[in-house]
Design a protein around this nucleic acid. Structure first.
Lengths: 139, 139
DNA sequence: AATCCCCTTTACGTAAACGGAAAATGTCTG
DNA sequence: CAGACATTTTCCGTTTACGTAAAGGGGATT
């Protein structure tokens, strides 16, 4: 049974291709590489981004939009990369994932509080606006 | 009809009181003041934090936990502070609030995607763990 | 008066996350 | 093969959000 992934004639992107795909600068991609978030292939000195690299870049950018630091994103990517042989390690990875999940649940809850407050604020302002416009412009 | 808030003998906190309440450093509070997020009273040169200040500090810290920059938090606090007399301004504030709300909805959606992925990852790991432990420990 | 303790301002330092320019090298295209 | 354009490394600059002395004011206590 060989479910080995056959090395497809993979689609390799050059750095400008990736900057175009994700609307980031080359500097940013090199920075992510410097801190070990991605590790594109090399053809000579040139970077070549595989599908895997681009998946990770997508995850990184989404993490950034959500306000996570690159260090945190690194930790989360490590969860995906983890391929532990020992049971102890496996348990630990699961635990780390659970911890991160707990943070995320908290974050969603807090975000929803903010949303609720903003919605209420909006309602109060709308009432004021309606009051004012009803007075001044009788239609 | 006077629903004016009577100036209660307000509870004023000193800076160390506030640092204790919120577990932040004094430097942080002074920094928030420097960039105009709060403006505590003064008794001589000493800062005195009113209930209003502390409400704002609470909001600021929650914003930070959610990954918002202090600049963004400033904008959101401005929404609360806004007391526009002109209809045009009022409309604009409502619009800014709606824009921010839209961002928040997007953010919640993305967070939930991350959560889903992590949950799935966890399930896969759990299966592996169960497989390994079932083999080694026949109990 | 000396010693605490809390508070203040001023000012330089730092970590994170890149930005941007320089100079060298690589690659494609006519 | 020349010229244009892409990429590379190197390195210093910038912004954000504070940290961290340094130097001192002003009460309360001993």
């Amino acid at each position: 049974m060989s479910s080995q992934s056959i090395p497809q004639p993979e689609e390799l992107f050059t750095i400008t291709g990736v900057t175009a795909e994700f609307d980031v600068t080359a500097r940013t991609l090199r920075h992510y590489e410097e801190i070990g978030l991605i590790s594109p292939l090399r053809r000579g000195s040139q970077r070549l981004y595989t599908a895997r690299d681009r998946v990770r870049i997508r995850l990184i950018l989404r993490g950034r939009r959500l306000g996570f630091a690159l260090g945190e994103i690194h930790e989360m990517l490590d969860l995906y990369d983890a391929d532990p042989t020992e049971v102890t390690q496996l348990r630990e990875v699961i635990q780390r994932g659970d911890d991160k999940l707990q943070e995320l649940y908290t974050q969603v809850a807090e975000l929803q509080e903010v949303i609720t407050e903003l919605v209420e604020l909006r309602a109060r302002m709308k009432i004021r606006l309606d009051a004012i416009t009803a007075e001044g412009e009788p239609l």
